[in-house]
Design a protein around this nucleic acid. Structure first.
Length: 204
DNA sequence: GAGACCAGCAGGG
DNA sequence: CCCTGCTGGTCTC
């Protein structure tokens, strides 16, 4: 935490903040390929109100780089993590190393939430979409069309759907807060999960 | 570079 | 409800 009056400095060791006060850092594919040795990822499984999930965190600055909900077998989530960060060394750790970070994720303590850091990798377009998602207030939802307008690309509605789907950090990048205009409600882990997360957020 | 794929949307049966 | 045309970014040859 920086000195001074602001609780939330604009920059924290190379991380930016968006309107929702989430800390994030962005890299593109080329930067990742050049410096992939720096992006060693430690991972572990945890539980949430919505089931078990797999989380991956950079070992240096402890930025969340990956989060997926897992079903029975853990292999699918792990394969997904490898696919997202193919050049990174992946190290499974005992729960202590990541649980300190993760116990804040599903907490209603906003100060704790704001201490989280995210590492986003994708194209310029995907970054715009994901940053737009981070600005959606908790418990509310908007449409793909509105997201497209917000990033000044009003016709790219369908492309927004694509980008949302490719988000690597479930829940923290709130893809569950985007809905179809005419009630369509698709989600990687099922529409029920999407609704469950949204109503959970509204309760807080 | 072409062609297919989509968690979209509007419009018409 | 399903089908069709239009759409733009990404992925796969």
């Amino acid at each position: 935490m920086a000195s001074g009056t602001s609780h939330f400095p604009e920059k924290v060791q190379g991380f930016d903040r968006n309107a929702a006060m989430v800390c994030f850092r962005t890299i593109n594919q080329a930067e990742y390929e050049q410096n992939h040795a720096e992006f060693k990822i430690i991972y572990d499984f945890h539980s949430s109100p919505f089931g078990d999930y797999l989380v991956g965190v950079t070992n240096t600055d402890k930025a969340v780089a990956f989060l997926t909900f897992v079903k029975e077998g853990n292999e699918e989530g792990l394969a997904n993590l490898r696919k997202c960060w193919p050049l990174s060394e992946l190290v499974e750790v005992d729960d202590n190393e990541t649980s300190q970070i993760m116990q804040t994720v599903f907490s209603s303590d906003t100060v704790a939430n704001n201490s989280l850091r995210l590492l986003l990798m994708g194209t310029e377009f995907q970054m715009k979409v994901w940053q737009c998602l981070l600005d959606i207030p908790k418990g509310t939802s908007i449409t793909y069309e509105q997201v497209a307008r917000n990033i000044n690309n009003p016709k790219a509605v369908r492309a927004v759907g694509n980008a949302v789907m490719k988000n690597k950090i479930a829940y923290l990048v709130p893809c569950h807060r985007v809905k179809g205009k005419s009630g369509s409600n698709k989600y990687k882990w099922g529409a029920e999960m999407k609704d469950a997360i949204l109503s959970y957020e509204k309760q807080e």
